[in-house]
Design a protein around this nucleic acid. Structure first.
Length: 487
RNA sequence: GGCCCCAUCGUCUAGUGGCCUAGGACACCACCCUCUCAAGGUGGAGGCACGGGUUCGAAUCCCGUUGGGGCUGCCA
């Protein structure tokens, strides 16, 4: 690890451990921020971090700031910012300031870097990644930068990365959630603050912005805890006053306990939206990942969350994202919707003519996508019949053909309403020697809707219409004939 | 490998030394209700990772072990 000294000695008069006084510093009006980078999708973990920041701001009368961390010009895509805003708004999280763009604040970072250069807190380095790795290999130690250029006195020109000269000491800090996090500076390598192309690196821009925006509470994912040591080192070197209070949220993992990754997991907020989940439900589910109101409530209104949320009550252990549980929360929200609102909100799933049975569907759907699959028999010209399901039903129902035949005949002459359809089906079952209504309706349901489960049949058939119902029964009868002929 | 962190049913969690023979929710199983499926109701199975301490008393405090995760980029 670095043992040489740097040119400057900025840290000599600077406390190198987190003083208790700074922890006690509390601004009258908290200022928090969500600082996503424009990656092209909005991670659910970022969504939860945004939610917790927002809850905290709304509860304390503080300010919630949106800042786009797009210092990596090579990857930055303006259109990605729109996705971030859309996802945030969809979740009901409105910001009070911003969006600010780091790409538009280059002067600020340049000034901070000049200050660091002047005080000797940083130095230029021209080592390549290969050289750094080679030296690490030679000395047999851990990978990472070794402070090789500390005393080479290289000019801080463009073309050379600028590294922070990490002083001796400790850079532990107090965290609202994780309590005391310790770290010896010997274990912090001389990290870069400015790329060789002149662009600031994330950690520099992050610190400068938090200071400039007077952020009082840094609430972010636990994957940033090790950045916090560097953050504090930079903060002090830059001479910024009272340090912000930190709260590192436990990570959200996948079912295997690994970090949620775009490659193998469903991580984008917009994916859940597109799959028919309600924003309120996802927000509620996310709120309960790592936090709990302290009692048995699982469904909380946003007002309750704002009133009762406490950073101090957030757990420090990571949680696994469970879509099954999310689905359950979603179904509760979906069922609680006024029917007309359900109808209008499910519209995006290309539903049509289903309003009359909406209340019956609502009780069975868990997502908007479910609403579609439960009513698709109405929109399709022919029901989609699963062959395996069909074979199984035919095998298990001896009176299959008889019931369909009798039902078609009776349906042709009755009044076309749910009650009459019920009576006719009972009669058809009796005629075919099947006394139980549950068994009698099964062949009809499969023939007409293509499924063995679904909303109540009588109302469904009434809505489908007499002609289409009978036509489908006839088609099923033919299918049965064909099956006998070949099978 | 190094550093940091974490650890209650399968999962999310309540629990902050006695109220715990550990509570709730999801999922699962059984039964009831019932035109299928849901919804609802009733019941069931299922957990304090392990080992040492401290204490009259430990899921709760301490240490170790094991397991898991994060970081270790001229990404953020």
């Amino acid at each position: 690890m670095p043992s040489a000294s740097c040119a400057g000695s900025w840290w000599a008069a600077t406390p190198t451990t987190c003083s208790p006084a700074s922890v006690l510093f509390v601004s009258a009006t908290p200022r928090v921020r969500i600082a996503p980078s424009p990656t092209g999708y909005f991670h659910v973990g970022t969504g939860r971090t945004a939610l917790f920041n927002w809850l905290f701001a709304r509860q304390t009368g503080g300010t919630f700031i949106l800042r786009i961390e797009d210092t990596d010009t090579a990857r930055n895509r303006p259109e990605h910012t729109e996705g971030i805003k859309r996802a945030l708004l969809w979740l009901g999280l409105d910001w009070d300031e911003g969006p600010y763009f780091q790409s538009e604040r280059a002067d600020l970072y340049a000034a901070a870097i000049d200050k660091l250069i002047a005080s000797g807190a940083v130095y230029a380095c021209d080592c390549t990644a290969e050289q750094i790795a080679e030296r690490a290999k030679e000395r047999g130690g851990p990978p990472g930068y070794d402070g090789y250029c500390r005393d080479r006195g290289l000019e801080p020109d463009v073309g050379r990365i600028l590294r922070f000269c990490v002083p001796k000491g400790e850079s532990g800090f107090h965290d609202l959630i994780r309590k005391d996090v310790s770290k010896d500076n010997n274990d912090v390598e001389d990290f870069g603050v400015r790329k060789s192309n002149g662009d600031p690196l994330f950690i520099l821009a992050n610190v400068v912005d938090d200071a400039d925006m007077a952020i009082t509470h840094v609430i972010r994912g636990a994957d940033h805890v090790s950045n916090t040591h560097k953050y504090l080192l930079l903060w002090r070197a830059l001479g910024y006053g009272p340090e912000p209070i930190f709260a590192h949220l436990p990570l959200i993992n996948n079912q295997q306990g690994k970090k949620l990754s775009k490659r193998r997991d469903k991580v984008a907020v917009e994916d859940y939206r597109d799959d028919g989940y309600m924003a309120e439900a996802l927000r509620n589910y996310l709120a309960l990942l790592g936090w709990s109101p302290g009692d048995d409530r699982e469904i909380l209104s946003v007002e309750e969350m704002i009133a009762e949320f406490r950073l101090e009550n957030v757990k420090s252990a990571p949680a696994k994202f469970d879509e099954v549980k999310l689905t359950s929360v979603n179904s509760e929200y979906l069922r609680a919707l006024p029917v007309d609102e359900l109808v209008s909100r499910a519209q995006a799933w290309q539903l049509d003519r289903w309003e009359p049975i909406a209340p019956l569907v609502q009780e069975r759907a868990r997502t908007f996508a479910d609403v579609y699959s439960l009513t698709d028999f109405l929109y399709r010209t022919e029901p989609v019949i699963d062959q395996a399901e069909w074979d199984k039903a035919v095998r298990k129902s001896p009176g299959f053909a008889g019931i369909l035949d009798a039902a078609a005949t009776r349906y042709a002459t009755i009044e076309w309403d749910a009650a009459s359809i019920h009576d006719a089906t009972v009669a058809a079952g009796t005629e075919a020697g099947v006394g139980q209504l549950g068994k009698a309706q099964a062949p009809v349901r499969l023939a007409v809707t293509g499924r063995s489960v679904g909303p109540p049949l009588w109302e469904s058939l009434e809505l489908l219409g007499r002609d289409r119902t009978i036509a489908r029964i006839h088609a099923a009868l033919e299918r049965l004939q064909a099956g006998r002929a070949t099978g």
